[in-house]
Amino acid sequence: MEESTEQLEVWCAGEDWCPVTSTATLIGKKWHTVVLHRLLDNGPLGFNALKAEVGGISSKVLSDVLDDLEKKQLVDREIVSEKPVRVEYSLTEHGESLEPVIQEMARWGREHLTAAADEESSIV
């Protein structure tokens, strides 16, 4: 994976805590990391295929997440065909560069988190 030289603009530049806060702001919402993880594992996916891979997400929420990740320059949206309209989502260079972060989050979760006694409230 080639490292991108273009950097994303942040609001807290110059503060020593800024890199952590800015990264958390980019990927810290509930479904963001799940979508990034699924795209890292599967490569480019159409909307319905991505929804199936994520599981438990509504079409509206997935659409909002994809729009947000696209605005944050982590996901690309490409129209593959006009009739019927088919859209494919893939990671940008910035999105791909999050792979070690997402992998480390998964590793940490496997090591430190366990299913709750009540499976309905499980975080893993």
Rank of each mutant, 00 (worst) to 15 (best):
E3L: 08
S4C: 09
T5S: 12
E6W: 02
Q7T: 15
Q7V: 13
E9P: 05
E9M: 11
V10S: 15
C12Q: 08
D16N: 12
D16M: 12
D16V: 08
W17L: 13
P19Q: 09
P19M: 09
V20I: 11
V20E: 13
T21I: 08
T21C: 06
S22D: 15
T23K: 06
T25N: 11
G28Q: 05
G28Y: 14
K29Y: 15
K30T: 15
W31I: 00
H32L: 07
H32A: 07
T33V: 15
V34I: 08
R38V: 03
R38A: 02
L39W: 00
L39Q: 04
L39F: 03
D41N: 07
D41W: 05
D41P: 03
G43C: 06
P44V: 06
L45K: 05
L45C: 15
L45T: 01
G46C: 13
G46A: 10
F47T: 08
N48K: 14
N48R: 13
N48I: 09
A49T: 06
A49K: 03
A49H: 03
L50S: 10
K51I: 07
K51W: 05
A52H: 01
E53Q: 10
V54K: 07
V54H: 14
V54N: 01
G55N: 11
G55S: 11
G56K: 03
G56V: 07
S58L: 08
S58D: 09
S59E: 15
V61H: 04
L62C: 00
L62S: 08
L62W: 04
L62K: 07
S63N: 14
D64L: 12
V65K: 00
V65L: 03
V65W: 01
L66F: 06
D67R: 06
D67E: 13
D68R: 13
D68C: 10
L69K: 02
K72V: 01
Q73Y: 14
V75A: 00
D76E: 11
R77H: 08
E78W: 03
E78Y: 02
E78T: 14
V80A: 06
V80K: 04
S81H: 12
S81E: 10
E82I: 03
K83S: 15
P84A: 07
P84I: 04
R86D: 01
R86Q: 09
R86F: 03
R86E: 11
